[in-house]
Design a protein around this nucleic acid. Structure first.
Length: 120
RNA sequence: ACAGCAGGUCGCCUUAUCGCUUCAAAUUUAGUUUGAAGAGGAAAGUCCGGGCACCAUAGGGAAGUAUAGCGGCUAACGGCCGUCAUUCUUAAUAGCUUUUGCUAGAGGGAAGAGGACUAGUGCAACAGAAAGUAUGUACAGGUUAUGCUGUAGUGAAACCAGGUAAACUCUAUACGGUGAAAUGCCACGUAUACCAGCAAUUAAGGGUUCCCGCCCAUGCUGGAGGGUGGGCAGAUGGAGUGUAUCUGUAAAGAUGUACCUAGAUAAAUGAUGAGGAAUUUUUGGCUCAAGCCAAAUUGAACAGAACCCGGCUUAUAGACCUGCUUUUUUU
RNA sequence: GGCCUAGUAGUUCAACUGGAUAGAAUAUCAGAUUUCGGCUCUGACGGUUGGAGGUUCGAAUCCUCUCUAGGUCA
């Protein structure tokens, strides 16, 4: 099947992000930190963030967000098909250096697996 | 050929698979398919100037800010072009000198925020008699004598209507304020409620420094709290880009012709693989050396549009082009 | 997308509106004192005033550009 990540699966609502930071739970798999919160009646949405304090250059921030988004996109069917519950997710990059795609991918995968285990 | 200086251009390429955004078409209903397009020379810093929008179709004065030789370009500018004074550097050559050297200096190169101290106020450490109410001392000249003239030392400045305005200031010119989070429309939702202060139609307040004037206005400001935090337009065809001719020393302008070239919004242009390449390192061979050949390795700087333009400044691996200069070799 | 502020010894602050070796406390080091250490006393070290350029006889101070850090506006 197609592995896509269109616009409406992206976490955009300021209100939801605020709620996520206040009430959400966290899973840390260095260099990625995952904030998650189960929701009702909607599809799963995911967002990606890199702190401006750690990376001053906009180019590297965009690069890291694109890498995390690509890793999430490739792993999405395996995680979302197993359980029917929906979440709002936010992947936060907490490392200080730019990691390779394989390292970010493994962190994202293990975080999603832990999320599936703890929510079921 | 190598090196240096100045100016300019480019700034990874090809391909497979999977994905993102916009537009068009089809099908169907909001998904899918097909096709097309998809970051920069600085998109950056926000240092200037404009367009555009709203606020009295924005008006007078004060204050404030900026600029400052002359001429031009431009929508405009603090930008750009030309040019002059001035300064620095180099230097043909000339004068003096036994020489070292000193003085002047055509020409070349670079810099060039440069109005006014004959309006007023201020400032000038140390040194020096004296730093502004200027003009003391010594010597020489001159004079009947004084006034006067020249030299001397200190200092950045004392040969004078002194110096200093990137000191206050004056003169001239320009500038109203705000800033796409402007502004207009649609949708959703709530609280025309509560507390405090000011004001009561000759008033408070607002129109982003103050005064006048004008306009708005029945309330205004602050606090705590409730709701929303979505969409469309603005917003991508423009002082647009390429090219040819003409005008002009040039910046630039005129005319013709061709082209359409991002439009995101927690923010699109990416990921993985393969190949090619500038480049990096190591080994071996040839060679006096520079370098050349072969194999392995590495695999591209600075950097991401956010309403749009014109500049300036800063960052930038490497490649290429043009001009000038020096050195070497050959003809 | 706008706007504003600050950078001075290792640290915390001075330096009046340009004027001379940029000062004080603390920290560090050395010496004295003490059986030893602390306290105390004496002395030394430590700064190209974030960087570059300019104005001026002279710049931490004035001007321009730039870097870094921080704040602020729905």
């Amino acid at each position: 099947m197609r592995v896509t990540f269109p616009k409406h699966e992206k976490l955009k609502s300021r209100k939801a992000i605020k709620q996520l930071f206040e009430e959400g739970k966290t899973i840390t798999k260095y260099p990625v930190k995952l904030l998650w919160l189960p929701i009702e009646g909607q599809k799963t949405q995911a967002g990606f963030a890199v702190a401006k304090r750690n990376f001053k250059s906009a180019v590297t921030r965009n690069k890291i967000k694109r890498l995390m988004r690509e890793a999430y996109r490739l792993q999405k069917p395996e995680t979302t098909n197993k359980n029917s519950r929906a979440f709002i997710l936010l992947f936060l990059y907490i490392g200080k250096d730019v990691a390779a795609f394989q390292a970010i991918e493994s962190s994202v995968v293990s975080a999603l697996k832990k999320l599936a285990a703890s929510s079921s």
